[in-house]
Computed example of a mutant assay.
Amino acid sequence: MDVLIHLFVGLHIVGIAALLGGFLTQMKAMGQGTARFVPAMLHGALTMLVTGVALVGLNEVQDHYVNNIKIGVKLALLVVILALVYVKRDEERVDKGLFGLVGLLTTANIFIAVLWM
């Protein structure tokens, strides 16, 4: 079961890399006001959601400690990210503030995962 947990952790990291990578590749365009949500950002966020739910379930099954408040905060941030990216995914240009918010929430999600014990 530990191998399965580690596999999902790896996939979770791939998802966040796609989301953050998509954001970082659009930083120059954000400065010019032409940034848009690329498909990698949506797919990365969805991957994070699916693998995160699987990780919580697998850890609960193994009676590992799961900080439900931390998971709830991370889930809330991810739902906001997913909603913004999904709704605005077909627009040619996304407002700088909105695009920056997705980057900020993604970064906050990473730091919550790493720093909150």
Rank of each mutant, 00 (worst) to 15 (best):
H12G: 06
H12E: 05
I13V: 13
V14S: 10
G15A: 04
G15W: 03
G15H: 00
I16W: 06
A17K: 14
A18K: 12
A18R: 09
L19Y: 06
L20M: 12
G21P: 04
G22T: 01
F23G: 03
F23M: 07
Q26F: 10
Q26P: 05
M27F: 13
A29H: 08
G31M: 02
G33L: 14
A35L: 05
R36S: 05
V38H: 03
M41G: 04
L46A: 14
T47Q: 04
M48S: 04
L49V: 13
V50Y: 13
V50M: 14
G52D: 01
V61M: 15
D63E: 14
H64M: 12
H64N: 10
Y65H: 15
V66K: 10
N67I: 02
N68I: 15
K70I: 09
I71M: 11
G72W: 01
V73H: 00
L77G: 05
I81F: 03
I81Q: 04
I81M: 05
A83Q: 07
A83L: 12
Y86L: 12
K88Q: 14
R89I: 08
D90C: 10
E91P: 13
V94Q: 05
D95R: 08
K96P: 07
L98E: 08
L98Q: 15
F99Q: 02
F99D: 01
G100F: 01
V102E: 03
G103A: 01
L105R: 04
L105Y: 11
T107L: 15
T107Q: 07
I110Q: 03
